[in-house]
Amino acid sequence: MNIFRLCGDLSHLLAILLLLFKIWKTRSCAGISGKTQLLFTIVYTARYLDLFTSFVSVYNSVMKIVFLTASYGTLYLMFYKFKPTYDHNHDSFRILYLIVPALVLSFIIVHVYTVMEILWTFSIYLEAVAIMPQLFMVSRTGEAETITSHYLFALGSYRALYILNWIYRYYTEDFLDWITIMAGIVQTILYCDFFYLYITKVLKGKRLSLP
């Protein structure tokens, strides 16, 4: 554990809680992509099956359980409790275009050929692109609520902080995992456009709207 990893995890946690808070407080999931949330739930489910097979630390296990619970909770709020507020007309990205390539790639580039390892790898690849339906939705509606923007910023920062963590770990403990590094870089690049808009608009008190 180092400061970059800790900040990354806290940023990730903040993002997930911000989203739940937003939906609960406004009693609405307008502007949130249910498809992205579904993808994240698939990601956590596939990756954190290792809760049953390998123990790292109490911290890791607690965080995994929180991420899993929060993501299923978000789906419950979006597709059940506040379903009428879900803007599915604008959530039209085809997620099979993300799931199938991620699955295929996880059979091609993987550390070890075991079911658990392929599921873990699949989750890493899918996570890298899981935000695309959400970004697509923002581009279709041309705007995002401020709290949604904070959510996206925290979510994007998490993997960027993980990249610093991997650089740090490479120098301090010779740790190098090309699968997570390459996927993490792709994931962070996808947010670059958004980061730019966030810094130039939202941080100056303006609403995030596209020209």
Partner: peptide
């Protein structure tokens, strides 16, 4: 035995 990768990140 079967090789198990231990992933220590989230």
């Amino acid at each position: 035995g079967e090789a198990i990768m231990k992933h220590d990140e989230l």
